[in-house]
Amino acid sequence: YAADILKSGQHLLSLINDILDMAKIEAGKMTLHCEPVSLREVCEDAVRLMRGKVQEAGLKIAVEAGDLPDIQADHRGVKQVMLNLISNAVKFTPEGGSIVVSLKPFVGPAGEDRIRVSCADTGIGIAPQDLERLARPFEQVEGQHSKTTQGTGLGLALTKSLIEMHGGQLSMESQPGVGTVVSFDLPVKRPDQTVQPIRAAFAA
């Protein structure tokens, strides 16, 4: 029973933290503390933290990345993004499936250096009509598998907002019964401007 109580407490704390973070973003009170961050190390650290849940779910997970430059970012925020994405992939990938986190550098439309991070799973997938609304607060896909998972529906909305606060973009591709790829890109160097509060996730 002690283990069950601990898991329940950790789950409740996670839900409360998500709600508080979204409230801060909506109120424009979320502040980024930018510093040199290795995205590869952040991803590998997130995978290590999630490995227990990955193994418990009977899944495989891997990180694919070459040599990448450090980016200017909020370490806690980027790590939270990765934990949310991997957690979602674990929740909606049946036993025997796999998750691959990949990182690739590319040049943005304005000639700026950027890094794209993708989290691909072999899960149940998402119908096209559900993709857009999933990035809104408290939205979840209803289905047979959702009955066995728990959450507020804030994870992806919070992830989207944190990415946009860093000057990045979130995108999703999915096919029911095949899997989902959630990707985001971040600039290597932050623009010389004050971070503005993000409200995009709350748009109707």
Rank of each mutant, 00 (worst) to 15 (best):
L6H: 10
M165Y: 07
G143F: 05
S161P: 08
G58W: 04
G111H: 12
A3T: 13
R136K: 12
F138W: 14
A127F: 15
P105Q: 08
V47C: 08
E44A: 01
D192S: 13
K160C: 09
L68D: 02
L156C: 08
V81K: 01
G167C: 04
H33G: 08
L68Y: 02
I126W: 02
I198T: 10
K7T: 14
L162D: 05
T122N: 09
A89F: 00
G167E: 10
I71K: 01
P197G: 11
K53D: 15
V178K: 15
G9I: 02
I71W: 00
Q196T: 09
S14M: 09
K104T: 15
E35K: 07
Q55M: 11
G58E: 09
A65E: 06
D70H: 14
V63D: 08
A89D: 02
A73E: 01
C43P: 01
A57R: 11
I61C: 13
E35V: 10
S14E: 13
D67R: 08
P197I: 12
Q175V: 11
T180K: 08
T93D: 02
E44C: 01
G143K: 08
T159P: 08
K104C: 14
F138I: 08
L32K: 01
A62D: 15
H166E: 11
K189T: 15
E142T: 10
A120H: 10
F184T: 05
A46K: 00
G153R: 06
L20W: 13
L59P: 04
D45F: 03
P36H: 07
M172F: 07
E44L: 03
I5A: 12
S102Y: 06
S14D: 15
L59S: 05
L83C: 03
G28V: 11
L32R: 00
S102E: 05
E95R: 15
K91Y: 11
M30V: 05
A89R: 03
F202L: 10
Q175D: 09
K60V: 09
L39H: 04
T152V: 03
A201H: 02
V54R: 03
T148F: 14
F202Q: 07
L162W: 05
S171I: 12
E64C: 07
N17R: 14
H75Y: 07
P187F: 01
V178I: 15
I124K: 12
L20P: 04
E44M: 06
R133Q: 12
Q169V: 12
I198S: 12
S14N: 12
P197A: 11
R48W: 03
Q193A: 08
I126C: 03
V54A: 00
L83H: 04
T149D: 06
E132G: 00
T149H: 02
P105I: 10
L39Y: 02
T149K: 06
G28C: 11
L13S: 14
G179T: 02
S171E: 15
